[in-house]
Amino acid sequence: MTIDHETLTAFAKTYGLIYMMIVFFGAVVYALWPSNQSKFDRAANSILEQDED
């Protein structure tokens, strides 16, 4: 099979899109996962704990 422009384009427009959606969805789930909340709170506050030097 030769990989021509048509094939690549079709692939990008379908599987490429699905792939990106899945990864993005994964990131959103990670960000919203309830048990991660405390970790994020800690991170958000961590930079304020140190007095700058």
């Binding site: 990989i3 422009h5 690549l8 990008a12 490429g16 792939y19 990106m20 990864v23």
Partner: peptide, 20 residues
């Protein structure tokens, strides 16, 4: 890896766009 797979899939057609 994650971002460049997406990126590569997206830009791959650019390398053959001269066929069009």
């Amino acid at each position: 890896i994650v971002a460049s797979i997406g990126g590569l899939i997206e830009i791959a057609p650019l390398f053959t766009i001269d066929e069009t």
